[in-house]
Amino acid sequence: MSSKKDGWKVNETREAKAAITEILSKLEIDQVIEIKDWLNKYVEETPSSQICSNYQKEQRKKMFDKGASRLDRIATYLKDKEVDVPSKAPNKLKYPTEGFDSDCNELNTCEIDSFLYDDEDIEELVQRDVLSRTYCPTCLSRETVPLNFISHSLSRLQVKFLFDKLMPSTCQHVLDIGSRLGAIVYGASIFTRGNVSTVGVEMDSEYAAISLNTIRQFGLKKIEILRDDIRHLPHVFKENQFIVMNNVFSFFLSKTEQEECWEFLHTHMRPGTVLAHHPPIEK
């Protein structure tokens, strides 16, 4: 791997020298000498991070693009195993009766996992009559009124955004509450190159088993999956921690249980915690 990287650096250096030579060839010798003196001074007096800032940005972009491709492969792997196959059948969830998402109910809502299925996938499923976008509120036929589409996973683009733009570099621990199929924990390992410790908490034993198997299959590092209720796990909270919650309580717990979870979080979150929550926390 190192020899391949060294080869890239040699090629980049050769190309840079050729470009500089081309520029200098268009100047008079006194201009060349002036540029040489300026360049020596610039390199001596300017921090290396500033000199190479574009290079570092480009390397980060390449790393995240490569990570996004790896997430795509994980999603394809799980779809091929027919994990969480979308269905026309109504969902059996605890639908909110007030506040955010209170317009969702068993008849007007279709649950589909955004980590596995993007907009193009959904359209393909609709065209194949695997899914419907509509239903009739009178006879319950799904043909006339638009359905609500919900997901309890973040999409791959959202996962990339979390670790590219939202997680501070000071955070050394990631906690995913309601880990489900593992989208966040996979992203944490991939986009930080396994340099942060990650814990996924998931109450559903089937989802937890899927995540553990996928972690092994793709050789992801520094991830722990706990099949438990977050209220039983005060030890998972760390200082300088990035906590991710994707609408994790409202469709699965009673209102009283949700209040207990928020009280527990308020009690146990540590200094330096950054909480990324969807929907916006005030809702």
Rank of each mutant, 00 (worst) to 15 (best):
R193L: 10
Y186A: 02
D118H: 07
T144R: 10
Y95P: 00
L107G: 00
S169G: 04
L212Q: 15
S102H: 14
T170A: 07
F149N: 04
S153P: 06
E206R: 10
S211G: 14
T144Q: 11
G194R: 03
E111V: 15
G178C: 07
G178I: 05
K92E: 14
L157G: 13
E206F: 05
F100A: 13
V185G: 00
T97C: 12
D121N: 12
K94S: 14
L140C: 08
C136G: 09
L107P: 00
E206L: 10
A209H: 12
A89H: 14
L140Y: 07
R128N: 12
P96T: 02
C110K: 11
D176E: 10
L125E: 04
S153V: 07
L147M: 11
S197L: 12
D176V: 04
S102A: 15
L181W: 04
S155M: 05
I150L: 05
S197V: 08
K94T: 13
T97D: 14
A89F: 13
C110E: 11
S132A: 12
K94F: 12
N195K: 13
Y186R: 05
R133G: 01
D164V: 10
G178T: 06
Q127C: 08
T109F: 02
H152N: 12
P137E: 10
K165H: 13
D119F: 00
L116R: 06
Q172I: 04
E120L: 12
N213C: 12
P168F: 04
S132D: 13
E98I: 11
D103W: 11
E202H: 05
N213G: 10
C139A: 02
D204N: 14
T109A: 05
T144C: 11
C136V: 07
V130K: 10
F163C: 06
L131Q: 03
I150Q: 06
N213D: 15
F191W: 00
R193Y: 00
M203Y: 10
G194E: 04
C104D: 09
N213S: 15
